[in-house]
């Protein structure tokens, strides 16, 4: 860029322009979040395709260092090996980006608690990796379920870090609307319920084959009842978001909650049909098919996996709604000066 152009851009920049360090930190937070969501998807695919033990050793892959495993064998070998090794590689990338983010937070971030959040993220990603490794080494289904349940929590943390580093969070002003104060706890409670629902879903997916049919049936019923409650609560939360006087971000979050929860319910129905067929009582509603579902086929694998991954997206949407509602609510105290970056707003 020429000197004159840079001069013109600097001249156009408002006195409150954001420093480059803040932008970079946010972009890295976004990158971490963008890596973690497909990581969840791939982790779900490991469970769906029952590839968890496709690589029986850890932290290596068939005796190789994780990063030195022959890429041709990975890409062109068995499908379950491709999925499991790919999950490990992406998880490693997620860990590396978390380290980069932590370094940036320590270097540029002035809010001490954000540095703590960065440390928590690093500890979380390491713990999650070790959980995944132990699941393989011990061949323990319970650990697989715990690993699958911790994943969404880490994803939510990455989403929260994106929000905390966002420009709208840093420059937020309170909105004079009491509804926002009620929205935050309701969205939080709904988020907790969604997470409980996800754990119940993880139980269904990781159910040991020795469990009695009636235990499985009970868990299915809990999952269905919770789905109904979650649907109603999320629609209430979404309506409050959409109707609020807060900035666009809150209203957009409301619309995204509606879209995600409707998608999730549809995926739930599709998951059941792709796994167990159309229930007898619903068979009149569907055109009968002379073709059986293809086990572990593309549609079955991705519908079931999407149902798990979209659950995390719903949870993340509710966390965003909670955070923004709390941020904009009249009771919240916003002090952008104390939360601005240490390098100074104007000096970029």
């Amino acid at each position: 860029m020429s000197k004159s152009k840079r001069h013109r851009r600097n001249a156009q920049r408002s006195p409150n322009a954001e420093p480059a360090s803040a932008r970079w930190t946010r972009w890295v937070a976004w990158l971490l979040c963008a890596i973690t969501f497909p990581l969840l998807w791939l982790g779900g695919l490991v469970t769906t395709t029952k590839s968890g033990m496709a690589v029986p050793d850890w932290p290596g892959t068939y005796g190789y260092n994780l990063f030195l495993y022959p890429w041709t064998t990975w890409l062109f070998g068995p499908w379950d090996l491709f999925v499991e090794h790919g999950h490990r590689l992406l998880a490693s990338l997620s860990g590396l980006v978390t380290i980069v983010l932590l370094v940036m937070l320590y270097k540029y971030e002035s809010r001490p608690w954000m540095k703590t959040v960065g440390v928590v993220a690093l500890v979380a990603v390491i713990a999650q990796g070790v959980l995944g490794g132990l699941r393989v080494v011990l061949d323990e289904r319970l650990l697989a379920m715990v690993h699958g349940s911790v994943g969404p929590l880490f994803f939510v943390l990455t989403v929260a870090m994106v929000v905390w580093t966002s420009r709208s969070w840093l420059t937020a002003r309170k909105v004079d609307q009491q509804g926002l104060a009620r929205l935050a706890p309701l969205a939080a409670a709904t988020g907790i319920l969604v997470y409980v629902q996800m754990v119940v879903g993880a139980m269904l997916r990781h159910m040991p084959v020795t469990v009695s049919p009636y235990s499985f049936e009970s868990v299915v019923k809990v999952h269905l009842v919770l789905a109904t409650v979650v649907l109603m609560l999320t629609l209430v939360v979404a309506r409050m978001c959409v109707a609020s006087a807060a900035p666009t971000g809150v209203r957009c979050t409301g619309w995204s909650i509606i879209a995600v929860v409707l998608l999730q319910i549809s995926l739930g129905v599709a998951t059941w049909i792709s796994k167990y067929g159309v229930p007898v009582w619903a068979r009149g509603m569907y055109s009968p098919s002379s073709q059986s579902v293809l086990a572990d086929g593309w549609w079955q694998a991705h519908i079931v996996t999407a149902h798990q991954a979209v659950g995390s997206a719903l949870l993340a949407s509710l966390v965003v709604a909670t955070m923004l509602a709390w941020r904009y609510a009249p009771a919240s105290i916003v002090n952008t000066e104390t939360e601005s970056f240490s390098k100074g707003v104007a000096t970029g």
Binding site: K275, Y276, G277, P288, S289, S290, Q291, S292, V293, L294, A295, D296, G297, Q300
Partner: peptide, 14 residues
Amino acid sequence: QRGVSGTAMPSFGL
């Protein structure tokens, strides 16, 4: 290979 259409028994054709 075929599965049992109309039931939960899928095809293991893969």
